[in-house]
Amino acid sequence: MFEFLLRMGDNTLVLGHRVSEWCGHSPVLEEDIALANIALDMIGQTRLWLGLAGEVEGQGRDADALAFRRDVWDFRNLLIVERPNRDYGHTLMRQFLFDLWHHERLADLCLSSDDRVAGIAAKCVKEADYHLERSIDLVVRLGDGTAESHAKMQAALEALWPYVGEMFVDDGLDVEMAEQGIAPLPSSQRARFDAALDRALARATLIRPESDFAQKGGRSGTHTEDLGHMLATMQFLQRAYPDARW
């Protein structure tokens, strides 16, 4: 259960951090505001998931201790969320792919046999609903915008595609969670994801890559090189001044 909650909370922690890196640097003022909103939602969700994780673990660690005092190998997020922002198209495509998965995941978790999980999911799914709507809207408009915006979105899709498969791979923990009725198998979401993805890509005039190769490891603690740098920044104060209260 603890590991399962880390998987949920680390996704939103890491993606929320990535999105917050844009603050003040986005293409237009309205996007600065929208990105701050998304990052705020993600961090708010993190507090719920990691807060419950700390409670379930029972070692006295709260959400902050889990966010700021674990090293890379203890993180359980999908690799896609730690991929760097690169250009704005890349950032939007990463969000779109994540939101497609996340929204379905949360919708399923609303039916969890664990009331605490179902309760958090019910709160988060409303936000995820809005995130997905915004993501689809932007991917469609930019895919079907200028030749340049189309090319950027297609390139971002191709660069991020190898990180999609990991969302739907079942492992031992997933089987255990499914047996207890806490969370359905990730693989059970794939068909719905594909259908929604294809609909959006068709409107966006973008082509889904053919390869089904998937980079994996994030959910069990083997990450890309990027996560360590992110944590070095994010955890700096907590690590440098371990006695301080902020």
Partner: peptide
């Protein structure tokens, strides 16, 4: 400092402020 805010709450408050 948003990416170096020392707690999740401080990070949220700062993000909301900059927003």
């Amino acid at each position: 400092w948003i990416t170096r805010a020392p707690t999740l709450e401080r990070k949220s408050i700062l993000l909301a402020k900059v927003q």
